[in-house]
Every structure is written in structure tokens, then in C-alpha cells.
Amino acid sequence: MLTQFTTWDIVRNLLEGGKWTLLLSLLAFFLGGVTGLIIVLLRISPNRFLRVIAKVWIELFQGTPLLMQLFIVFFGLSLLGWDVSAWTAAAIGLTLFTSAYLAEIWRGCIEAIPSGQWEASASLAFSPLQQMRYVILPQALRIAIPPTVGFSVQVVKGTAVTSIIGFTELTKSGTMIANATFEPFMVFGLVATAYFCLCYPLSVYARHLERKYHVAC
């Protein structure tokens, strides 16, 4: 059966895929942020064993392709007897990926806080947890915001790779529509435009924040 696709049909289908790209990005960024916070706390903990675990975690996820991480999550979880959908695997894979990068970014920000701040708060009888909570984190957070916003662009772009494990987001929608309409130039042009519309504002905002806080982290 041959169906004629109007430009509006193409755009409508792409927007439907774009919705999932947006959802996946938000979820991965949020869960990745939570996981990343745990990892960064392990990374700077006084316990050497915990530090090594966090370091290995970061090195592993930064040193291997996102596509392989997704494959391993996808096939690995099904070996454990879980019936994972492409959506679940994509969300877990991207969360792990995001957590490693965010942890590394935040470690830099925490270490940028002069050690005198730790010492001063220790001399005020703050417990290590209190020092972190009331003295270090509030300052680190300030310098962490621009690079964190900047990294969110990488998360959005990373969602494109999940199309390969069969998650129907923007890129997958684009591939399917390109196959159906035989207009790959226009379709992938539109897909690229959609990603650009998602990412460019984030990039600009990150740059703006960087200038505003006037710090490099």
C-alpha cells in the first residue's frame, strides 16, 4: 500500500519522536544527576576503597562507547531474567553514562574550593558531613552550574544513540520516515534542526552562565 506523506505528516511524526527524546533526556539528566552526586561523594570520600570504586566507575563509562554501554545493559539485564524494553535499557544506559561525566565535572568543582574552607569549617567543629553540606557544596554548586548546563547538551545528543537499540525517539523516527518517503535529505535535515532547537538554547545559556559567574571549572 502506498501512502503519500505530506510535509505536515513528516513533521508531526518527528515531533512525536522528539517528545520521547525530550522525556529521555530529562529522565537521564535527573537520574544521572542523582547517581552522579553519589559517585562524586564516593570519589572524594576519605575511604580509599570507595574512592577507587568511584574512579573505576568514571573511567569505565568515560572510556567506552555509549553504544556499547547500551548494548551491555540491554543484553545483560535480559540475561538476568528481566524483560527489558528498549526504553528501560535506554534510560538506564544513559543514566549511567550521565552520572560518570557529571561526577567528574563536579569533582573538579569541589576540588576548586580552597582547602582553607575545609579547615576553617573543621575548626568551627563542623562534622565532615556538615562541612560538605553548609560550606563546600554551596560554593561548589555555584561554579558547577555552567558546565552542568553545558553537559546537558551531550545528554540530549546522546539520546540519538538509543535509536540503535530500537528506542523510537527522534532519530529513529527520522530513519523510519526517511525509508518510507525516500526523502532522506529533507528528513534528516529536519531531524538535525530539531536537535539544534533543543541543544542550541542550552549551549547559549551555559555560555551566558559562564560569563556571569566568570569562572572556569
Partner: peptide
Amino acid sequence: VELIRNTPFLVQLFFIFFGLPSL
């Protein structure tokens, strides 16, 4: 720089491989 940094590599690849032949 802005165009490339704000779009995924996979889409750039598809655009080059599938899109350019139609030109």
C-alpha cells in the same frame, strides 16, 4: 561550530550518508 556541536554525530552521519546522494 554551532551547527555541529548542537546536533548528534549519528544524525550528521545519516545526513551525509543518506542525505547527500539525493543531491
